[in-house]
Design a protein around this nucleic acid. Structure first.
Lengths: 204, 204
DNA sequence: GGATGTAAGTTCCATTCGGAATGTACATCC
DNA sequence: GGATGTACATTCCGAATGGAACTTACATCC
């Protein structure tokens, strides 16, 4: 008897609603509690749904997590894609792109992703679920980026992109542990300087 | 009745032996099973010790984990410090230092550290235990590095160091998930090139 | 509008967890 | 060499977990 869904809902709508409610609640739990303390019961409580429901949608907890990964990356991809196409070209675009990747990889969505990533290391099932999705996200983002910075040789652009992504992920870890934000800002600024330099070096 | 400890052991020795056995077993578990599946029972089984022992040494699981962090960083620090002092000076030293940091931050010890880090994000107690220890490790390593690359302005050396550390941590995450080793090698080589360039730029 | 299948809620169970209580072996000190 | 305190083992318990079985509610199709 939720306040939503007062009207008639088709079966597909019902299904989709509780499904996304479950996945969103899962991400919430990952961010708030971490993977270790994310229980099915807690997810159900947050989603306003019973345990039976999750079992109906997902045969096991791992499957729920796998679906959450997809849900998560889909959201992240959407956010990134939207911002990237609005990037300016040239060297100012490089700096802006780095900021963008940092924002993308340091937000709550990425926090949840990190939880799943780390958990996946020792959970083969989850791992197999994550890998293709993550690869697709990387490719998709890379495509958008290279499309914007088109005057760079493809290989150079890729290297610059992946360096940024990995640096950003390291910084995100640092942020999660409560490292010094000022230093992170400093490092990111320096990296932008270097990246722009490299960019101009190669494209000029 | 282990094969070790057949001789008389003083109380302090007994205490120290089972303590380190427990901590080593904890790290083992973190690497093999991940934080979520690391239970006290499993640790005891691997350490060849009973549950009562861990309770005698550590009042709660969180305390064990906190001690494991310290044990871990101490080991890591030892390994890094030993290798760093043997570094050559000049730009070849920069490249070698990067390789060293990569090795240090991508081994099993660091894998366990990452598990604890991520878990600490949502566990205040563990977090408070980790922060000072991690900071000390960073400072200690940084000190050694700056001592070797002494002809660089201090601030520049620090930035270079932290950029490398964070990049390395991002790459380590990628490695854990089974990313392409060839690409990681490529990225690391490129970063070495850039770092050497920056180094020569500033010190010349 | 009544039959039918799917979505979701309720209840239950086996397992496992961390931690407490209690008992035993060992080392130290007189 | 016997008393005493520390290190470790055994056993138990309440709580929480994931998953199964069963029941109820809803939408769809005739």
């Amino acid at each position: 008897m939720s306040v939503l869904g007062r009207t008639h809902r088709t079966q597909a709508e019902r299904r989709e609603q509780t499904r996304t409610a479950l996945l969103d609640a899962t991400i919430d739990c990952l961010v708030d509690l971490g993977y270790a303390r994310t229980s099915v019961q807690e997810i159900c409580a947050r989603a306003g749904v019973s345990k039976g429901a999750v079992q109906h949608h997902f045969s096991a907890k791992a499957e729920l997590m796998a679906a959450a990964v997809e849900h998560l990356t889909e959201k992240l991809r959407g956010r990134l894609a939207a911002s990237i196409t609005a990037l300016p070209g040239g060297s100012s675009g490089v700096a802006a792109a780095i900021d963008l990747l940092w924002e993308g990889y340091s937000g709550t969505l990425s926090t949840a992703a990190t939880e799943l990533w780390v958990a996946a290391r020792t959970d083969p099932e989850l791992r197999e679920a994550i890998r293709p999705v993550d690869k697709a996200l990387g490719r998709s983002t890379l495509e958008h980026v290279t499309a914007v910075a088109g005057d760079l040789p493809k290989e150079r652009a890729e290297i610059l992109f992946w360096l940024t992504v990995n640096l950003t992920r390291g910084l995100a870890l640092d942020a999660e542990l409560g490292g010094d934000p000022k230093r992170r800002r400093q490092l990111l600024d320096e990296w932008k300087r270097v990246a722009v330099m490299l960019y101009e070096d190669t494209s000029a």
